[in-house]
Design a binder for these strands. Structure first.
Length: 309
DNA sequence: TTGTGTTTTATTGCCTCC
DNA sequence: GGAGGCAATAAAACACAA
């Protein structure tokens, strides 16, 4: 009988494939296999008839579709004839792919459970005419492929989620900008109304707005002391607050602070501020020196609004 | 036919669990 | 310490375009 060499079953060196820095006669010279080979695998490997890995793979192709039970025809030498037997075993020792049927069978088994218990491994090996270790390796590689695919699926899912969130965020930003400009618009209207009512309720010269602004400018630039009365209003971005600081000498200064912004508060602030200005007016000798103010809401980078008298 | 990229089979070394 | 799983990797097998 011709010399035989197998990937499994004690190949004798040569150019037998096997990767991973291995090479040479693969399995039985592999330290890992020696250490991890369980009694069953050893049993299969030691057999010279039915379970000689590659041999079984080829025999698998000879069989029919194997409806259950024994999935392949083994080369036992008694019913295949020596020619076929020798022909197969003359094949050079090399890595062989599993047949489509074997793969289908394994796939089905993998679908039911991707872990391989020893009993199932042996049964599969027997049914498919493979080494138990081949079955184990196939499951291992299959799990690795599944994991890779799963990662791809997860990545796609995350990408989709991100895109949805991004679209949502963009919509919200647009909405925010829209509301912000609405607030500005309404604030301007409100201030114009405030000014209108002040104008109609008092008699003042056309130069008063300028005078009012001058007074404020002067007072603000003079001194900053204690006695802080903070009047806040929120701006749309939740970032800005206007604070009116009343100083010991009854002058005022404005500063920016944190806020979350609303039209109501703008209006409220406007009223409180005007009230404060009234008080300032009272402290002044000339009660007509301060009549009304224009409030410009702070933009993103502005510290305070502009009032004029 | 051949060069090249992809898939499949298998090994190795490390890790964890019992 | 042995068994089994996994990541990394090698190398054969395969697919396919030029």
């Amino acid at each position: 009988m011709a010399a035989r060499s197998f990937l499994y079953g004690g190949a004798s060196g040569g150019d037998c494939g096997g990767g991973g820095g291995g090479g040479g006669s693969v399995l039985l010279t592999n330290k890992r296999v020696h250490s991890s080979l369980n009694p069953v695998d050893s049993f299969f490997l030691s057999r010279s008839s039915s379970f000689q890995g590659s041999r079984s793979m080829v025999s698998f192709e000879d069989r029919g579709n194997g409806s259950g039970g024994q999935f392949f025809r083994t080369f036992d030498g008694d019913d295949n004839g020596d020619d076929e037997y020798d022909e197969y075993f003359h094949q050079p020792e090399k890595k062989r792919r599993l047949t489509a049927d074997q793969v289908r069978f394994l796939e089905k088994s993998f679908e039911s459970d991707n872990k391989l218990e020893p009993d199932r491994k042996i049964k599969l090996a027997k049914d498919l005419g493979l080494q138990p270790r081949q079955v184990a390796i196939w499951f291992q590689n299959r799990r690795a492929r599944w994991k890779t695919k799963q990662l791809e699926r997860d990545y796609d899912d995350l990408q989709e989620s991100y895109n949805k969130l991004k679209a949502n965020y963009d919509d919200l930003v647009k909405e925010k900008e829209k509301l912000k400009s609405e607030v500005h618009e309404l604030s301007d209207k409100l201030l114009l109304q405030e000014k209108g009512s002040s104008d109609s309720s008092s008699t003042k010269s056309p130069s008063e707005p300028q005078r009012c602004r001058q007074i404020l400018d002067q007072d603000v630039s003079k001194n900053i002391e204690t006695n802080v009365d903070r009047l806040s209003t929120k701006s749309m971005g939740g970032v800005h607050t206007i604070s009116l600081l009343e100083r010991g000498d009854s002058s005022y200064v404005f500063e920016q602070d944190q806020s979350d912004g609303s039209v109501d508060e703008v209006e409220n602030f406007s009223k409180i501020f005007l009230h404060s200005v009234d008080e300032l007016k009272m402290e002044n000798s000339d009660p007509n020196s301060v009549n009304s103010c224009f409030l410009g809401l702070p933009g993103d980078d502005q510290a305070f609004g502009l009032w004029s008298y």
